[in-house]
Design a protein around this nucleic acid. Structure first.
Lengths: 310, 310
DNA sequence: TAGCGTTATGAATACGTATTCAACAATCAA
DNA sequence: TTGATTGTTGAATACGTATTCATAACGCTA
């Protein structure tokens, strides 16, 4: 280990070089030489949804501690990350973190071949080399089902994200499962695709049906805001008297009295923290196989859902 | 120009190399050689404010058209971008775009020395080599002053961002100027520092005073949401009967009936578009001096402010 | 003075790309 | 056939860094 050497001379040099000559190490050259860029690619969708904005913020801030930075890729939605990511590998990034979107199997395999770990936040995956950090989707669905059933609701709706999004599917499964085991077989489903407008349309569809639900579980707070808007403004419904609305994520805005949204929490900061731990373990070779973590949350009951009468 | 050559052979090579060998050009090596990375640094604050999230999204998407990507730096607030940016220059980025934060004079000079253009979105600067894209801050302040005065208000408040933030200062100046020219000398100012909690405290301070304002102009929609929350929930005020609240940006959520916020629009997409034009002109040497652009907006009157009686 | 271990210093190499230059083959005109 | 022109190819170089290897300096002992 030839690195614990002279003190005075090195100090002199460092001082001279750094200050006097204004020396700036070229990080690109270093990366080229070291085969390590200290750059993490982040592929993300739905930045207008505060949950994902939080993910960006947290990842950037937490990564700063180790002098790493984010190369940002935005994807249109869950299934269209690949085109944006076509050239990620060319940047020699140390890892790829994805949130609100996912990699195709082919892309996952390309990454695996090159030894670049992929960690997905808030999406499932069983592709080789893809690790995940998820919330308690299925359990949360059950808990929300229980909460709504206990509130005396009769007809249940669900506003999903993109149809094949794992998070939406798991949440729906838990929801359905609980209701089914209590004699409710019918859950009306509409697709909000994680955008405000599509979610508003989905709610219009649900509430405009012959037997509109009196309880709607939305797969994200962001879509739940659209639900509240449409229900109150367009259908003149009182929340929670005529309709209960439940969201997911516990985004800060959910606690505003203007929304007062019942929701299931999913702490972005914690999820990002775990994702970074995974990235580090996978880069260092400490773990070689893909890991799958769950971050716990809890039901936050607020005014948008009718309470159980006891 | 020796680039329009053989067709068959090149095709063969490309096909062989690209597909068969899985060749991936190393963008870092290319950048090193070309002295051009196709990477734009983005320094941004307040990602929890949807306006800035929009900026990130727009910049990323618009940059994709030219195959450039964002290296992301998040700063705690207006005045603390420098530490985060300490090593930007080492990445050989082609330009630095800043929004919601600004560079120090020293940093600006470092960038100028190295020929790396800086473009600030939504912040002013007269530092050498720093271009800006701003909204109509001063005019907007005047227009909001006129709107509120016409609404019959008597006591005027202002919730500012960080004290020395140029946008807040300009907006306040226009606001004050209009009111002053109509005989109102007193504007009560409190500092919300662009965070929700600080804005809530600022509003508590304003509304808790002996002569609380009946009109509050907040320097951002995000802070205006805090104002609405505090006014309604903690002070039991009716908006706009007891208090009018006006924001700035016309963030999508402002149009929700839950907020129904009167505001002055500032289109993020357009601002980003102009910023990219500036970046391109400055990189190509088409323009050498710093440029300063204004993007127009308009007053969007909604239910959070009392209307003029005619 | 030669020999030894420690430590500093200098030169060389490689990372993967783009550019440049020289060499070479092929085509065509004289 | 020769010369000129054009097109094609290969080798060399440079970008800025980290590593490696060899050399040189130093203090000490035999």
């Amino acid at each position: 280990m030839p690195d614990t050497n002279i003190a005075e001379k090195t100090r002199e040099k460092v001082l001279k070089a750094a200050k006097q000559l204004g020396y700036r190490p070229n990080l690109l050259a270093r990366s080229l030489r070291m085969n390590k860029s200290n750059i993490i690619a982040l592929a993300i969708s739905y930045l207008e949804n505060p949950f994902y904005a939080q993910v960006v913020k947290e990842l950037s801030e937490q990564l700063r501690a180790t002098d790493r930075h984010i190369l940002l890729f935005t994807a249109p939605d869950d299934n269209q990350a690949d085109p944006a990511l076509a050239k990620v590998l060319n940047y020699q990034v140390d890892a790829l973190v994805m949130s609100g979107t996912k990699a195709s199997r082919e892309l996952a395999i390309s990454f695996k071949k090159l030894g670049v770990p992929i960690v997905q936040i808030n999406r499932d995956s069983n592709y080789p080399g893809v690790s995940t950090v998820q919330g308690e989707d299925r359990d949360a669905g059950r808990i929300i089902g229980r909460h709504l059933l206990a509130g005396g609701h009769k007809r249940f709706g669900f506003v999903s994200g993109i149809a094949d999004s794992s998070t939406s599917l798991f949440r729906l499964e838990g929801y359905r499962e609980y209701l089914q085991s209590h004699g409710i077989d019918d859950v009306q489903i509409a697709y909000g695709n994680n955008t405000f407008e599509a979610a508003a349309n989905a709610v219009r569809q649900l509430l405009g049906s012959k037997t509109p639900p009196d309880a709607i579980f939305c797969a994200s707070d962001y879509m739940a805001f659209a639900a509240l808007e449409v229900a109150k403004k367009e259908f003149g419904l009182k929340v929670p008297d005529d309709l209960s609305v439940v969201g997911f994520n516990d985004v800060p805005a959910a606690s505003l009295s203007a929304h007062d949204l019942t929701t299931f929490s999913q702490p972005a900061a914690t999820m990002v923290e775990k994702a970074i731990v995974l990235v580090d373990q996978l880069i260092s070779g400490q773990k070689s196989r893909a890991q799958h973590l769950i971050v716990k949350g809890e039901l936050i009951v607020r005014g948008s859902s009718r309470q159980a009468v006891s």
